[in-house]
């Protein structure tokens, strides 16, 4: 992992804070976060998380692309892709007893912010952290809705198949 282009990262975080808090934040706050949680660069092809391993942190993609796959009998099946501003592995923060549900791999050179609950709690008065937590909330709400829709579709499929079989 190499150091990232910090100017672009600062720009992203300033935009995020402005979007969620409705105000600009001082550069000192952004720098404070980056000092504690420096962005990491992941070269294309690098595995970030492995399905089934213990989880402890989430990633926010700043640049590049990550792909999530789950194991299948014939190798792996893609279950999701994430690009800039998207969060990956977010359940690790508040359900650390749950193992990683998918393997995540960088498919492009990717820059990420690594978010752990400890790092966020240590900077709880930092408005950039407030914006990140708000962003995580929206991410989780979208994922729950998507998951519930998929369950509903699966139930409808099941009902149709049951009717066809009967």
């Amino acid at each position: 992992m190499r150091s990232s282009p910090l100017d672009a990262v600062r720009f992203y975080l300033q935009g995020l804070a402005s979007l969620y808090l409705g105000e600009d934040v001082a550069m000192d706050h952004i720098q404070s976060l980056l000092d504690r949680s420096p962005p990491v660069e992941l070269p294309a092809g690098q595995v970030v998380f492995q399905e089934g391993e213990p989880a402890g942190s989430a990633l926010m993609v700043l640049r590049g692309r990550l792909v999530a796959t789950v194991n299948t009998a014939d190798g792996g099946h893609v279950v999701g892709e994430s690009g800039a501003w998207e969060v990956v592995g977010e359940t690790a923060l508040y359900a650390p007893d749950q193992p990683r549900s998918a393997t995540v791999r960088a498919v492009q050179d990717t820059t990420c912010l690594v978010l752990s609950q400890g790092d966020l709690a240590a900077q709880q008065d930092n408005p950039v952290v407030a914006a990140l937590e708000y962003h995580l909330l929206h991410t989780l709400a979208q994922r729950v809705r998507a998951s519930n829709r998929a369950i509903e579709d699966a139930w409808q499929d099941l009902q149709e198949q049951t009717e066809m079989l009967s």
């Binding site: 407030a130 937590e133 909330l137």
Partner: peptide, 30 residues
Amino acid sequence: IRSTGSDGHTLRRLLLSSLTRQLVHSNARL
């Protein structure tokens, strides 16, 4: 929800924890 005080991070964390549980449960069902 936008507050950087203790009320803000307490509310955000409770919501994060609640939504995370919902997501873990929904994904397990799926």
